[in-house]
């Protein structure tokens, strides 16, 4: 069975139709890249899958492991294994990053009917994963994303992904605002999470991220639909020719 099956998905926000009949199938173990000009609906797709309020699905369906994703609350989707790495991670002042991580892990475990992680186990896990991403103890003590640089915020997203072990990772423009070194650290973090059971949808405007996270399938999105699908060489082609072929609203 496909991990993620999207059929004829239509969605709008405040009467603006953004997704117009999108189809996408992601099998376990696959990494799909979604590219496309600005305004083509890439971020909207990620928000609709994660269940952001204000986005209204008007037609179509999205199934995770055959389960109707669109019928679930955002927190239930998270517990079911959907993870969204935000393009602009949100600040939560006064809440230590460590507290946030622990609350999130245990909330998901509880929803799945699992026992809470013990303090020593949790600390061990965080220490290991944070170390791999070059996240310091000081960052873990600070408020969630408060005073973090662009690179630190993105690394924090990947840390959460590594701790929560989702089935489906959606990365929304994770490369934006990253310099080459940070891009490498983040990409290594993502690649370490590639596994035969896990699927990934990597949304990006630029090919450069895909040099580090090499996709199995590349899609081009335009006006709310997938208009072209190919292998990783498609990304290189786009890099050379740009999005001009996809209409006047190209970036």
């Amino acid at each position: 069975m496909a991990l993620l099956e999207i059929r004829n998905l239509h969605a709008q926000i405040e009467d603006n139709q953004i997704l117009r009949g999108l189809d996408l199938t992601v099998n376990p173990g696959e990494v799909h890249a979604i590219m496309g000009p600005n305004g083509s609906g890439k971020s909207t797709l990620s928000y609709v899958l994660a269940g952001k309020p204000d986005y209204e699905v008007t037609e179509g369906e999205a199934l995770l492991d055959g389960q109707d994703l669109l019928d679930m609350d955002p927190d239930a989707r998270a517990a079911a294994g959907v993870f969204l790495a935000f393009q602009y991670p949100i600040e939560i002042p006064g809440v230590a990053t460590m507290t946030f991580l622990r609350t999130a892990i245990n909330a998901q475990r509880k929803t799945r009917g699992e026992a809470e992680l013990s303090t020593p186990d949790f600390l061990r896990l965080v220490k290991e994963k944070a170390g791999e991403l070059g996240i310091t103890q000081d960052m873990l003590r600070r408020g969630v994303n408060v005073g973090f640089s662009g690179g630190e915020k993105k690394r924090n997203e990947i840390l959460q992904m590594a701790l929560l072990q989702p089935k489906l990772c959606i990365l929304d423009e994770t490369d934006s605002g990253l310099d080459i070194d940070a891009l490498k650290v983040v990409s290594d973090g993502v690649n370490a999470l590639r596994s035969p059971e896990r699927g990934m949808v990597v949304i990006t405007h630029y090919q450069r991220l895909l040099n580090h996270i090499v996709p199995d399938v590349v899609h081009v999105m335009h006006k709310g639909r997938i208009v072209r699908t190919g292998g990783k060489e498609l990304a290189l082609e786009l890099e050379a020719s740009g999005y001009a072929a996809y209409g006047q609203d190209a970036a």
Binding site: P53, D75, L164
Partner: peptide
């Protein structure tokens, strides 16, 4: 939404944000 996406319920999210405040 950020909290809910990480798996927190509505109540948990409000409690967390207010306790931070």
């Amino acid at each position: 939404f950020y909290c809910l996406q990480r798996g927190l319920s509505q109540e948990e999210a409000v409690a967390l944000i207010v306790n931070g405040f």
